[in-house]
Design a protein around this nucleic acid. Sequence first.
DNA 1: TTGAAAGCGCTAACAG
DNA 2: CTGTTAGCGCTTTCAA
Lengths: 336, 336
Amino acid sequence: MKVGIKDVARVARVSPATVSRVLSGGNSVSDALRAQVEAAVLETGYLPNLSARRLRSRHSHTIGLIVADIRNPFFTAVGRVVEDIAYRAGMRVILCNTGEDPEKEAFYLKLMEEERVTGAIFAPTRQSADRAKAPPPGFPMVLLDRVGPYSREDTVVLDNVAAAAMLVEHLHERGYRKMIGLFGNTSMTGQERRDGFVQALSRYGLAAEAVFVSPNAEAAEAEIAHRLTGAGASGRPDAIICSNSLILLGAVRAIKNAGLGIPADVAVAGFDNEHWTELVGSGITVIEQPVEEIGATAMNMLLGRLETPDAPIRKVVLSGRCIVRGSTEAKPLAAE
Amino acid sequence: MKVGIKDVARVARVSPATVSRVLSGGNSVSDALRAQVEAAVLETGYLPNLSARRLRSRHSHTIGLIVADIRNPFFTAVGRVVEDIAYRAGMRVILCNTGEDPEKEAFYLKLMEEERVTGAIFAPTRQSADRAKAPPPGFPMVLLDRVGPYSREDTVVLDNVAAAAMLVEHLHERGYRKMIGLFGNTSMTGQERRDGFVQALSRYGLAAEAVFVSPNAEAAEAEIAHRLTGAGASGRPDAIICSNSLILLGAVRAIKNAGLGIPADVAVAGFDNEHWTELVGSGITVIEQPVEEIGATAMNMLLGRLETPDAPIRKVVLSGRCIVRGSTEAKPLAAE
DNA sequence: TTGAAAGCGCTAACAG
DNA sequence: CTGTTAGCGCTTTCAA
């Protein structure tokens, strides 16, 4: 029932080695034998055993993609691109969803070693900064986010500081002065966006009220509902900046539930140009990340490093684009 | 540098077989030797080679998840649940994104065989109905959608006919009579929802205008923009039903771009209770699919079949829930 | 309970 | 260009 390379060889009246050569697309096989082998493969319904192939060839043709939550549209989009490029490069992708859980993260990182993956693309959690002290993995890795200042791996990131500053500048220009920022507390990305937010505000001599929250809609909604009552240090904010689409979602919900208007009562801006941001009310102003390009860059950096392992470490910083929509219309004068 | 089971054995002063037994959690090892082995594993930094393990043990501990587009939130949610249950069951998940491409679908199906996966969860494209005639795969498979009427695999689906009918009934009750339905043209799901739509309308003696479109926002937007000009058979519709969230997105965009109001000019309802559907305008009426339950059921069916391969084929049909929102407010009388 | 030996299915040297 | 010969690293008989 189960047919191996030897069976094919017997049917094709050649040696197993020849079959192997044909299968691996090797060109050092005569056309005659190649035809025989191909016929035999069809006849026997042969299916290569990838485990055996990998064991022997020491080449897994597999890359790992390790992210916090595939439901985060940013990671979904990246995953899609990575899979696409990998497919074209003849590689498989193992998707690892860590759920922000450092334990699961460590498990999957170890799994990648055991799988002897060719390489990995990794969006680390902030906690994994300790990883900087851990032994380096046995395979090339591209990070989708910084891990501390001293990462030894290739990295591709958004210019988060500049992007957050863009939002602040835009809101300031439109007349908003009491801004509050909500930032994910599990990633360096959140950290950096907070820094950009604080720095930009201080350039205007304004106080920054920056809050770290768990990066999900529920936590953000609760936090903002609370702030909208005026419970924050500086009373009710007139503008809210959200560091990712999940937090943004929570913010919009909270504002809606509080019966407030956007931007009449409070302006809103965020990160990630999700489809729906254009549809809510008169649209929500967002920073668009070049998600496809981020994924493609990461994957291409990885493929590049496989070819030239000793090339110097590279860090690619991509810029976001500010898409202005109705949620940040100029502040009504009456409010002042 | 690279340490294998033999190295561990040497350090632990036992045989490779004993190391293997300890690693596989076997209980037929004395505590003394077990301790020695565990110490040696730590000392040497041993990492098992999964390819070798799988080759020898003929057990991959891997399941394949094959879907059209991981960016479709339905699949994302399912994927998340599948990964979670798999992780707890000590299994890995290989994610395969077919992009609705039958060729890629076939490729991945074959790949799963070559990986000797333990099982697979597969959301087939409509074209793959031919698969019914293809030789059955060498592993248990659970389908997330019907493939023709005669599938030989376990299946879990939404009661699409009933769900579509629910939307029609709801709209009819609210006074809408000129409904148009847009359905994805690549899945049985789209097909079934169309059938439910048509049947329900005919029960009211109403003509059904059902259109199959490519299941993406752009195609849907173009189609609806066209229809809103009154180009359809029965003039401009007073209500639109969309068979998935991408099509729904296109519909909302088209209506917005046409400068029309929801539901003042045209009512809208769809499938998938995406977060944003509650936020657009006064909310969009949708059928909520029990996505988590669908994923969990599929995964548990798969695990169940691995234990009892000869159990009879099962088909689980889950019901959707209609969430009524502002997009289907009672039709203004003036319109008639 | 432990070890010795025999492969899992394949590819990579090495000859010819 | 082709075949022969060794294993890749591990688990699993089979005896002891």
